[in-house]
């Protein structure tokens, strides 16, 4: 078993987690969503279904959106992870334009799905600064929102597209 410590870089901050059985230790069964929330206190990542079916726990792993409830933390050694807490400017607290656009468009109701959606949009824009409406909907296709804020979310995303002549509201 002899697990060495697991190093994560979460929102540009390094964490060395001991693997073992003591309270607070990382255990092999811990999912990334569990570690983020319960060990690192980053509760912005929400758990909806805990089985990869709702998208609420989406974080970026090496820049790609993944479901943190289906990933074992021990398998993330040396990996760079970004969560919702990592989007705002750590010095000034200025929000990411996507976050600001969600506010401006009122793109949430209960808001439980919001952090996960924002992470997917963040990854979309990183790889594709001028996505089409279809690409935006596809990027969000794994996110469940029962309040049905979808239309305002699409407006918010269109409103924060990094390279666009205009939005298709």
């Amino acid at each position: 078993m002899s697990e060495h410590p697991v190093t994560l870089v979460v929102n540009n901050r390094r964490y060395d987690l001991e693997v073992g059985g003591r309270p607070g230790d990382l255990q092999p069964t811990h999912t990334l969503s569990y570690t983020l929330r319960e060990t690192l206190g980053l509760t912005g990542t929400k758990i909806g279904c805990d089985k990869g079916e709702c998208g609420a726990c989406t974080v970026l792993l090496e820049g790609e959106p993944v479901l943190s409830c289906l990933i074992l933390t021990v398998e993330c050694h040396g990996k760079k992870i970004t969560t919702i807490e990592g989007l705002e400017d750590p010095q000034t607290g200025k929000l990411d334009p996507i976050q600001q656009s969600f506010i401006d468009s009122g793109a949430f109701q209960c808001g439980f799905c919001t952090p996960g959606m924002i992470m997917s949009v963040k990854a979309l824009f990183a790889g594709n600064p001028s996505p089409t409406g279809q690409e935006i909907r596809e990027a969000l296709s794994g996110h469940y929102c029962r309040c049905m804020s979808h239309y305002h979310v699409l407006e918010a995303v269109a409103g924060s597209v990094p390279k666009a002549g205009g939005t298709d509201e």
């Binding site: 509760t43 929400k46 919702i84 976050q99 506010i103 808001g111 919001t114 952090p115």
Partner: peptide, 19 residues
């Protein structure tokens, strides 16, 4: 007018029961 809790929601700071 933006909702009072808007910034908390988009920053992941709103406290739900599991938080």
């Amino acid at each position: 007018v933006p909702r009072k809790d808007a910034a908390d929601l988009v920053r992941g700071k709103a406290q739900f029961i599991d938080d």
